[in-house]
Amino acid sequence: MADLVEKSKKLSAFAAVDENLKPDHKVIGIGSGSTVVYVAERVGQSTNKEKFVCIPTGFQSKQLIIDNGLHLGSPEQYPEIDIAFDGADEIDSNLSLIKGGGACLFQEKLVAASAKQFIVVADYRKDTGILGKGWRKGIPIEVVPMAYTKVSLELSKLGGKPNVRSGLPGKAGPVVTDNGNFIIDCDFGEISPESVADLNSKIKSLVGVVETGIFVGMAQKSYIGNSDGTISTKSA
């Protein structure tokens, strides 16, 4: 089973890069997560990799860029990105996403929002059609530390079940993001594709919320690696 999952991740990542990375692309966003490992590997195999720069979404993707011999840049240097590749924790029928299982959601969304084209790569387990159906850990929400109790209370009023993400066993206390903030994972159950944008807006409006792990209207295309070795694509 594990071999099938890894094979599907590599298939989707390689296909996404092969079909969408163009010779005239100069700035490329490289996301976070286990599937993006294969994106970075494929981009690193490009014959013209000396001619472009890669923008990371966090510490992990920064290391992927360096390890694959790619030029490292930053969002401050390159606020406009030609194309970005990233994974997802879950994908619905409208290509809305849950991201942030690895606590990189703010930088992932910054890179996605800066990209002219945003491509999602994932294995078949992530393509459930409804957010919250397969990903039962809740929506990741990055919050300013001093606001976490207030935000948790407001999330409960919205019908969610908030939980500050623990750093155990590696760290006593909450997970701390690359930006020095906490992560609240908030379970809202299954979220219909029609109500995703409204829920995201309500969470974003709460004082103390830095960013949500709901990505609405950002992905132009998804590449899903299936267990039988085929690849499914979907365009927004």
Rank of each mutant, 00 (worst) to 15 (best):
G229Y: 07
K137H: 12
G58V: 01
A112C: 08
G225H: 03
E41Y: 06
G69W: 09
T233W: 09
W135G: 04
A103C: 10
V17R: 03
A115Y: 00
D228E: 05
E19H: 04
M1P: 03
D89V: 06
A2I: 12
S61A: 03
G189D: 08
L206V: 05
S61M: 03
S192M: 09
I191V: 14
A84Y: 11
Y124F: 15
I203A: 05
Q77V: 04
M218Q: 07
S32K: 02
F52T: 05
A113D: 09
G138I: 05
G189S: 08
N20S: 03
V175F: 11
K234P: 02
N68I: 09
M146W: 08
P174F: 12
D185W: 14
L155R: 01
I91V: 15
S152M: 12
P56Y: 00
V143T: 00
G189Y: 11
S74L: 06
G132L: 03
D185I: 15
P174S: 11
P56L: 02
K157S: 11
I83W: 02
I214L: 15
A219Q: 03
N200D: 15
A84D: 08
K7H: 12
G180V: 06
V210Q: 08
G180Q: 01
F85Y: 04
A16R: 02
E50L: 12
K109F: 13
D3R: 07
I28V: 15
S46F: 13
S195Y: 13
K202Q: 08
S8E: 02
L4V: 15
G102L: 09
Q77E: 14
G160F: 11
I183E: 02
E190Y: 10
R125Y: 13
K9V: 03
K150I: 10
V144D: 04
S156E: 14
V111I: 10
E6K: 13
K157Y: 12
E142H: 02
V209Q: 06
V17A: 04
I139H: 10
R165T: 05
Q45K: 15
H71E: 14
A40L: 09
D187S: 07
P23S: 10
T177K: 06
R42A: 05
A88C: 06
T128P: 03
Q77S: 11
V144L: 14
G189A: 09
T212F: 08
A13H: 09
F215P: 00
A13C: 12
P145A: 12
V36I: 14
F118R: 01
L72P: 01
S114M: 12
V144G: 01
L4N: 09
D82G: 00
D67G: 04
V36W: 13
K62N: 00
K62Q: 07
N163M: 13
A113R: 08
D92L: 10
E90T: 11
A197E: 14
V120G: 15
V121W: 04
G159C: 01
F215D: 00
L95K: 07
S222K: 09
L105P: 02
F215Y: 06
V144S: 02
A172W: 06
P145V: 13
V207T: 07
G33N: 08
N20G: 00
E154S: 11
L97R: 00
E50M: 10
N179F: 06
D228G: 05
L158V: 14
I224N: 07
D198Y: 14
V43D: 06
L97M: 05
L72I: 08
G134S: 11
A172L: 15
F14A: 12
T149A: 13
F118Q: 01
